[in-house]
């Protein structure tokens, strides 16, 4: 008998304290809760994923009533999932409301430019070449220049590495560097890789390779070459002197509303643009 009362007492104590804590939390939530609520689903680009994830983390603190799910698969998945209604916000490495890189223009979507992304043309760390002109890079990728000797390096055949068709980085490379010149996608000195990480591995393991990747990936066995004599740095990309950069976009179906709008506004706020965004090696657009 004694034992049961003890149990009952303990249970009562636990229950009441739980209630108390719960009540405390509810009041706190109520005090903090902003007017926005709802569910945000972000899908698309993996390059922008660190950015959207960080933004979601911070945004949740300010708007606890909003549920945010962030995922990343590929750039084209962004506008596609928004158009299909699977996601409310699509992240994409290019402005998908225009026809870019062989993809159709997505009508009815609204694009918000959220960050500038610097890219780099990379070579193996032991490569003597430190600078290439846009013309030279074009010629290498078109297959007109095939030996490092022709651009001031060793007498070795150039190994050209490309990303898979439709990769956001490749779309930007074709847009900013190739400028309408077609990449030669065949030959025994050419290969394609799936992801940015694979690109880094491929170039760091082959002394004669050339490739391209987000500037944030440049470390270890690879180095970024200067383009037209301008060093690949975020500062140079921010000022526009360095030409190999792109923009990251968030897309919504029509004008952004409610929670989506609040989320995009948060990313575009001075605090986020010059705080977390910069820390993640993106360049503020505001």
């Amino acid at each position: 008998m004694k034992r049961t009362t003890l149990w009952k007492r303990m249970a009562a104590a636990v229950l009441s304290s739980a209630l108390l804590i719960g009540a405390a939390f509810t009041t706190q939530y109520r005090a903090d809760a902003a007017e926005v609520s709802g569910k945000i689903v972000v899908a698309g680009s993996t390059a922008l994923l660190p950015l959207t994830q960080q933004a979601a983390k911070e945004f949740k603190k300010h708007h606890p009533k909003v549920k945010i799910v962030v995922s990343g698969s590929s750039s084209i998945a962004g506008p596609q999932s928004v158009a299909k209604g699977v996601a409310t916000i699509g992240a994409c490495d290019w402005d998908a409301t225009r026809a870019v890189g062989g993809f159709p223009a997505y009508k009815g979507l609204k694009a918000y430019k959220i960050a500038k992304i610097p890219f780099a043309v990379i070579v193996n760390k032991n490569n003597a070449v430190n600078n290439l002109s846009v013309q030279q890079i074009q010629d290498i990728y078109e297959g007109k220049i095939t030996n490092w000797k022709q651009v001031g390096g060793k007498d070795e055949e150039i190994v050209v590495i490309n990303r898979a068709k439709g990769s956001g980085t490749r779309v930007n490379f074709e847009d900013k560097i190739m400028d309408g010149h077609a990449i030669k996608t065949s030959g025994d000195n050419y290969k394609e890789v799936q992801k940015s990480g694979d690109m880094v591995n491929a170039v760091s393991s082959n002394p004669n390779a050339i490739g391209f990747v987000d500037l944030a990936y440049v470390k270890g066995g690879i180095k970024a070459v200067s383009i037209n004599g301008v060093k690949a740095t975020t500062a140079n990309a921010a000022s526009g002197k360095y030409v190999f950069y792109g923009y990251g976009y968030l897309l919504t179906k029509g004008e952004a509303k409610g929670a989506d709008k609040a989320f995009i506004n948060y990313i575009l706020s001075q605090k986020f643009q010059h705080g977390s965004l910069k820390k993640l090696k993106f360049i503020p657009v505001k």
């Binding site: 698969s73 590929s74 750039s75 084209i76 998945a77 596609q80 299909k84 993809f103 159709p104 898979a164 068709k165 439709g166 990769s167 394609e192 799936q194």
Partner: peptide, 10 residues
């Protein structure tokens, strides 16, 4: 297939 499937329009 694995190289392309994520990067194509449905």
């Amino acid at each position: 297939i694995v190289m392309q499937i994520l990067n194509v329009d449905f």
